[in-house]
Amino acid sequence: MHAVYPLVLGALLFAIGLYGVLARRNAIAVLMAIELLLNAVTLNLVSFSAILRDRYGMGQIFTLFIITIAAAETGLGLAIVLLVYRQRATADLGEQRALAEPVEPVTADELSPRNVEAEVAR
C-alpha cells in the first residue's frame, strides 16, 4: 500500500468535515462535522507515525490525547446545544441571530449632544 493513500483519505475526510461545518444548519450536524475534522487529523497523525517509523510513536500518542479531549469537547458542546434547544426549541444555527451586527448602525448624529437633548425633551 502506498504511503500517500491514508494521507489523501485524511485530507478528503477533512474536506467533508469542512463542508459539513460550513453548509449544515443544525448545531448537532455541525458538531458531528467537527468530529469528522478531528478524526481526519488523527488518521493523518497515525499514518505519519507509521511512515516516519517514529520510535516514540508520537503521532499515536497525540491521537490518544485528541480522542480524550474531543470526548470532553463533545460533551460540553452537547450541553450547550441542549441549553439553546430547551430555550428556543430549535438548534438551527440560522436562527441564532440575537447577537449580530446592528441593522441600523448608530450615526454620529444620533449620539450628538443636541439630539440626546431632544430625546430628553420628548
Binding site: L37, V41, F48, I51, G59
Partner: peptide
C-alpha cells in the same frame, strides 16, 4: 491539522 502536517 497544522500540527499533524508539521509532525509529518
Amino acid at each position: 491539522y497544522g500540527a499533524a502536517m508539521l509532525y509529518g
